[in-house]
């Protein structure tokens, strides 16, 4: 029995639990599998077909993604002779790891967070900007024309959406008067959800994240009919699976931030007090944040069924010509809201 207790202790040891299980690697993997499966199911429903079904029709084909994962894992990883090996191998792995890094500062409940810092919003926003640079590295190291074009497109897009996202986050922290997620959620609980306080910021953030995580119609950097698979054309096997997962992992992280900044964090379930510490401080608030993030993510993958893809110049034009201005407007709106709060 002592061993079992020790094991349970080890699993629940906060650093381990946080990084490996929830909301770390394992939870993100489950999230990705669920999201890719539901993306295919959603597209299938809209497109007069079933989507994945053959493996276990009663579970609506849910194990299909596990099967895919196993296939990716067992497939030979081909590293072409012409690539620059070190960056080629490092880029997707590092990108995936760094894509999950912002989770170290995003709280899932007032007490459930590994790193307490005053500038958590700042750190999270800063960390989300790094993975795209590694995608560019991957494309460069691949030594393939299509990868190169994909990287070039990605680098154009980064400049657009990162600035919009950072401006929107700035406008929200201006509104809440803090750079700490905890305080931001507190303000929302006291006042109103951020999406109601500043809807323009919410919409702008949503679109910018779609642009950043290459959702349709902004799936430009890996446009299949144009540049095969963008920066990841040369990847195969588990490396390709990992590369595919990066954008979903980033989407998850971005949407956690979205929930914390706009959707009141752990609002509905977080207030319930049952007396059980684990239930009160981890499961209920954590579940409410995660469920909201999943719902937002589902909305983002749904657009695949409605849109084609923009051309890069359209996306840039839309980004700089419209959404950038909307981001500036959202700062103005935040100022107005702050002013109104001061008055009343």
């Amino acid at each position: 029995m002592a061993i079992v207790e020790r094991l349970v202790d080890l699993i629940l040891w906060p650093p381990l639990f946080y990084y490996i299980i929830f909301p770390g690697l394992i939870f993100v993997m489950i999230f990705e599998i669920f999201l890719i499966w539901s993306e295919r199911k959603i597209a299938g429903r809209v497109q007069m077909r079933y989507g994945p079904l053959e493996i276990a029709p009663r579970l609506a084909g849910a194990p299909q993604l596990l099967a895919d994962l196993i296939r990716y894992a067992l497939q030979e990883v081909i590293i072409p002779r012409t690539v620059d090996k070190l960056p080629f191998v490092i880029a997707p792995i590092a990108a995936f790891v760094i894509a999950l890094m912002p989770l170290i500062v995003t709280p899932f409940s007032p007490t459930f967070l590994p790193v307490t810092t005053e500038g958590s919003i700042l750190i999270a926003a800063a960390l989300t900007t790094i993975p795209p640079l590694l995608l560019i590295l991957a494309g460069w190291a691949s030594n393939n024309k299509f990868s190169l074009v994909g990287s070039a497109r990605e680098s154009f897009l980064i400049a657009t959406y990162e600035i919009i996202i950072l401006l929107v986050i700035a406008s929200m922290s201006f509104l809440y008067g803090t750079l700490d997620f905890l305080k931001a959620v507190e303000v929302q609980q006291a006042l109103l959800w951020g999406i109601l306080l500043n809807p323009i910021a919410a919409i702008t953030y949503f679109v910018a994240v779609m642009m950043g995580t290459s959702r349709f119609p902004f799936e430009i950097a890996e446009a299949e009919s144009e540049i095969v698979m963008g920066a990841f054309t040369e990847y195969s096997g588990i490396m390709f699976g990992l590369a595919m997962g990066i954008s979903y992992a980033r989407m998850f992280v971005y949407n956690i931030i979205f929930v914390l900044l706009f959707l009141g964090g752990w609002s509905p379930l977080g207030g319930i007090v049952t007396g059980n510490y684990i239930l009160d401080s981890i499961i209920l608030p954590g579940a409410s944040v995660a469920i909201k993030a999943v719902l937002i993510s589902l909305l983002m993958v749904f657009t695949r069924a409605v849109y084609g893809r923009y051309r890069i110049d359209h996306a840039l034009k839309g980004g700089w010509g419209f959404w950038f201005i909307m981001a500036l407007v959202s700062i103005g709106l935040s100022a107005a809201v702050v002013y109104l709060m001061e008055v009343f």
């Binding site: 959603i42 429903r45 809209v46 007069m48 077909r49 079933y50 749904f302 069924a305 409605v306």
Partner: peptide, 10 residues
């Protein structure tokens, strides 16, 4: 799209 999602026509 939402309509087709709610009422699929397979």
């Amino acid at each position: 799209g939402m309509l087709r999602l709610a009422r699929p026509q397979r």
